[in-house]
């Protein structure tokens, strides 16, 4: 893996270890997950034990250590979405994509993720597909959405 982008990010943050969280966020912004090579590189360049960076990467929920699918299907799990049936949306995604929540399909096409609350409670329950908000969702609408995306990707 070409890690020059990591060096650029390090320079941007003046190699300040206090900016570790922001540095890791910038890396993820670039490649949508935190590649192991990048984490190891960080550890070496900043002289921070690998264990500490790994602890950060697993403590903060926004980091992903595995590559994510082309389509990230995020279900908002805020209180308003919960009482409006958000857990059933997750179950439906799990059924349709045959993966557990938090995982990615083997073809790297879909990931299921859960988020605490995005503050769009009036639209509950909410499914966010790559940043696009789908409001007032039902299990059935989730299925249709996934079918549509699969069709767009040609078959399957």
């Amino acid at each position: 893996m070409d890690l020059t982008f990591v060096d650029a990010i390090l320079t941007k943050h003046n190699r300040d270890t206090r900016s570790l969280l922001a540095i890791m966020q910038d890396i993820q912004e670039e490649v949508r997950y935190l590649p192991k090579e990048a984490v190891q590189h960080l550890s070496k360049e900043l002289s921070i034990p690998l264990s500490r960076i790994y602890a950060m990467a697993t403590f903060y929920n926004s980091f992903h250590l595995e590559p994510r699918g082309k389509y990230t299907c995020t279900v908002c799990m805020g209180t308003a979405c919960h009482v409006a049936g958000a857990p059933r949306l997750v179950e439906q995604l799990e059924r349709d994509l045959k993966i557990d929540s938090g995982k990615t399909t083997p073809d790297l096409m879909f990931s299921i993720e859960e988020v605490n609350c995005v503050g769009a409670c009036a639209l509950a329950p909410l499914l966010i597909v790559n940043g696009e908000y789908n409001s007032n969702m039902t299990s059935d609408a989730v299925s249709r959405k996934i079918k549509k995306l699969k069709k767009e990707e040609g078959g399957a």
Partner: peptide, 21 residues
């Protein structure tokens, strides 16, 4: 923030700004 509810707690928030868990 990095997606951690506990960072709303002031000392945790400060730890996070300092680049820690």
């Amino acid at each position: 923030g990095g997606g951690a509810f506990v960072c709303g707690e002031s000392t945790a928030l400060m730890a996070s700004i300092e680049g820690r868990v």
